[in-house]
Computed example of a mutant assay.
Amino acid sequence: MRRTLAISAFIALSLAACGGSETSTPVSLPPAEGAADSAPETTVPEDLCVPVGGEAPEPDIAAPEVLETNPDKPEIDIPTEAPTELDRTVLEEGSGDAAEAGDTVIVDYAGVRSSDGLPFDNSYDRGEPFPVVLGQGGVIEGWDVGLIGSQTGERVQLDIPSAQAYGEVARSNIICENEDLTFVIDVRAVVKAVDPGDVPTEPGVELSKDPGVDDTVFEDLVVGDGEVLEIDDTAVIRYVNFRGDTGEVLETSWDADPLQVVYGENLLPGLLEGMEGLAVGGRRAITVPPEDGFGEEGSPDAGLPAGTDMIFVVELIGKY
């Protein structure tokens, strides 16, 4: 499926965060079976580990911009005793669908050692929420299990024993061998697994007639019942882009991680206008003339001839 238009329409112009930068996210590196024996190069010698009560080293965060102060970053109360089993504490209730295995949760998180609260990583300072597909083994077991049942807007604390984190494998000079970990996690959105039968294969509205539409027009295919999208919100979306005159699919994001895009003037004018008033849970068909899209020249290499309308079908999964 072509993706060149997706880069122009959403990713390059308005990417909020979707794994785009190289960052230190140890939670995303689950230990393989037998890793303590088969991968000694990943083990940090005990004498290099920061002792309990020691001072944290400077964070190794590779990102274009690091936010010096983020008011959303939580303070973390560590457990009074070392966790012997996964302890899940909801600090703030969420709403909507509960996350199940196979769903994607988009989260911000901060992680510390349970023993002394020494921080090792967080997404808030990077300004990059982190998408996690549950039940796939792509994160440590404490997350894979502990985020089941989460809802959009929830803040949850996970106190994770080392056996459900990295066990005997050290990951850094803070995450040492047999280290218990504590996370506070803000669930930005719960994205249900894609049902192949629910993927739009046609625009759902009348195709453009020569010479096409004069201005951007839109029609709600599904009316959302959640919060309404506002300027500067980060929208969590899926979309399919159709050629306006034939209905041919130009490109789609439906089979990939949900896009997180800032709803503002950096979007194509047709998308900025066409997404106005869209509510979470809604699906909308937006017909965009060339002047509100990529211009009269179109993008022939991507299958969009000159002077041709586009029809975006956009589903708003969540916002924050």
Rank of each mutant, 00 (worst) to 15 (best):
P40K: 09
P74M: 10
V90G: 09
E33V: 13
F218I: 06
V66I: 15
C18F: 10
L221S: 06
D159N: 15
A56C: 08
T152Q: 10
A101E: 13
I286L: 01
E168F: 12
P200T: 06
Y166V: 08
E179C: 15
A110S: 10
P129D: 04
T69A: 15
L15P: 13
E100H: 13
A9G: 06
E273R: 11
E41T: 10
S162T: 09
D116W: 02
N178A: 15
S253G: 03
E273G: 09
N70E: 11
C176R: 09
T80Q: 14
V52C: 07
D77Q: 12
S21N: 13
L86Y: 08
L259M: 00
Y239C: 01
V223P: 02
L221Q: 06
I61Y: 14
D87T: 11
L221D: 02
N70C: 06
G226I: 01
L268E: 05
S8W: 09
V107L: 04
P31H: 07
K192V: 09
D125W: 07
Y166P: 08
D255V: 01
I61W: 14
L118A: 03
P59H: 12
E177F: 14
D198P: 12
R284K: 06
M275N: 01
D97K: 14
I7Y: 14
A32M: 15
N173E: 10
L259K: 01
L13A: 10
E22R: 13
G212V: 02
L48S: 10
W143L: 15
G135C: 03
P129I: 01
S123D: 05
G54P: 07
Y239D: 01
K319P: 04
D220K: 05
T80P: 08
Y239L: 00
R243L: 06
D47N: 14
L118S: 04
S150F: 03
M1D: 06
G295N: 03
D225A: 13
Y124Q: 05
A306P: 13
T43S: 15
G96M: 02
A39D: 15
G146M: 05
V112G: 10
I76E: 11
M1P: 10
C49T: 04
E179I: 04
D301Y: 05
A110E: 11
S21C: 12
S114A: 13
P300D: 07
A16D: 08
T287P: 10
G102V: 02
E273H: 13
G270K: 08
G102Y: 04
A235I: 00
